[in-house]
Amino acid sequence: MKGSVIKYERDNIDTDVILPGPYLKIHDYAELAKHAMEGLDKDFHKRVKPGDFIVAGKNFGCGSSREHAPIALSYSGVKAVLALSFARIFYRNAVDGAFLLPIEIDESAYHDISDGDSLEVDISKNEIKNLTKNKVYKMKPFPELIGKIIEAGGLFNYKP
């Protein structure tokens, strides 16, 4: 998985800024995508390209249980969010519908990765390559259940 980075140096990016409440009435995912990150970055929709990664600080996705948040990011083209940590409902929602990969990274990777860097993510090796800076970082392995849901391609494909 290769893509370039949109970085928000910010903790506690909540689901209300990822997808503001008024848009929860939209059922067309492509339309939802137009409002992704609108509460934080009005230009996100213009900036994001298919395959991009978001890099952010601690507690990404805190707040509401709206699955619309990972859906909006996913349909914008975001393949993974790399954050210092995730709020748990978002974390699970992200993989349930195979919308995007929630990847936990450590402080050194977080500080090293810059906006616009090209990354290559290999979850089979728990490895992130920074192609721009020619560096390699470790990602935290997924907890077992999350890993299995990802492997299966979503909750409904997962057979315990």
């Binding site: 249980s65 709206r66 699955e67 409902i89 699970r92 929602n93 349930d96 519908g97 259940l145 979503g154 909750l155 409904f156 997962y158 315990p160």
Partner: peptide, 17 residues
């Protein structure tokens, strides 16, 4: 609190993983 995929799962199975 759960997301919509889990809501569907619970509607269908009355269970949550």
């Amino acid at each position: 609190g759960i997301g919509t995929s889990d809501v569907e799962h619970v509607l269908a199975t009355q269970c949550i993983m």
